[in-house]
Design a protein around this nucleic acid. Structure first.
Lengths: 192, 192
DNA sequence: CCCAAATGACTGATTAGTCAATCGTTGAAA
DNA sequence: TTTCAACGATTGACTAATCAGTCATTTGGG
């Protein structure tokens, strides 16, 4: 009920997310996390046996949320372009509204920790989008590039736009950036 | 002469580069760097007063090399498209041929260390390209987007292609990837 | 012989993780 | 209603290992 008396496990995860994205995994000590969460050092290890377990728990938590959210409403669209626009919007808005969680997932993916868990767990999330891309290629909407290149360009496009929106040194209209960005990538992938 | 008897300062920087990109700044101890470089722990501190100095020295070294290399041959081209293609090629090939240095610069840019040195030092490097982008916009070659968005999309395009080339799980023709990638981005930024 | 370069044992601080002691809630007995 | 035993949740002082950085000593080329 009272947000102050929230679950300690949640408090630890919130504190860890904040500090990890701020200072990195190695740059954040378990003592700092405990202090930020307002619990004793021992409490952290009741919920997460090791620091690495904490990191992995955070990853699966946020990765799960991200996976759900980027698919919202896609099946309601009929054309491939609308489906991909929905994916584009979902992905960017997720990053903009949850910058710490988004940053954490990115940080985790390019860290040694990823090698310790099944990489397939991560990959199978993208199959959904891989199929979408391939649909565009075989149906002739996309130019005849490999799905890998098409996917990479698309996702790096979302990163480019998301990065601009979150950059405090840049103040441009958010909706316009998102729409312009999509048009650029879509045109690039389709027009000859 | 003999590569074994190379300058100790260089040996330390090489070792640090390797370990930093492998395990991150905090994840690498000065003792590990010294051992990898084949010198005593004290020697490292003869050349670099602190660990942070070592990191900053590495950054300025590689950033300088990168800045020089991506501009090679651009002024010899006449059309904007050829200049940008040259930039595209230079940037991707630098990343592919010097993955550790490239990764290090990226890692450094998105770390707290960057705040401790003049950020302008980094920014002024991009003015060159910013002007190139603006030239394309004012001359009507590029669509009327902000230079910021145009730049971001372009550089994220190079990252997308570079990432695919370096990904050991993907084996696609390098030259084709680079050319296809450029065509996608160029078409996206120019066609209506 | 000399002196800058190199060394590695050393220091105080900090790390991840432990564990015996304490806290606070609960349910049943008086 | 009051009391208290019981037990899981929480605590923080503690440890062994590791950290960045020091410095008296050794080394080796001119």
């Amino acid at each position: 009920m009272d947000p102050q008396v929230k679950d300690k496990r949640t408090a630890i995860m919130d504190a860890a997310l904040k500090l990890f994205t701020e200072r990195g995994f190695h740059g954040t000590s378990t003592a700092q996390i405990s202090k930020e969460a307002g619990v004793a050092t021992g409490t952290l290890f009741n919920y997460f046996p090791t620091k690495e377990d904490l990191i992995n728990s955070l990853y699966f938590e946020f990765k799960g949320r991200l996976s759900c959210n980027i698919k919202v409403g896609i099946n309601e669209e009929v054309s491939l372009k609308d489906k991909l626009r929905r994916l584009w919007l979902n992905f960017i808005w997720w990053g903009v509204n949850n910058p710490e969680e988004y940053l954490f997932v990115e940080q985790f993916c390019s860290s040694p920790y990823i090698t310790k868990i099944t990489r397939e767990e991560v990959m199978k999330e993208y199959i959904f989008f891989y199929n979408l891309t391939q649909e565009g290629i075989t149906s002739g909407i996309f130019k005849h590039h490999t799905p890998e290149l098409t996917m990479k360009i698309f996702f790096h496009g979302t990163k480019a736009v998301g990065g601009l929106i979150l950059d405090p040194n840049v103040s441009l209209d958010t909706d316009e950036l998102i729409e312009d960005g999509f048009r650029i990538i879509w045109n690039g992938l389709t027009t000859e």
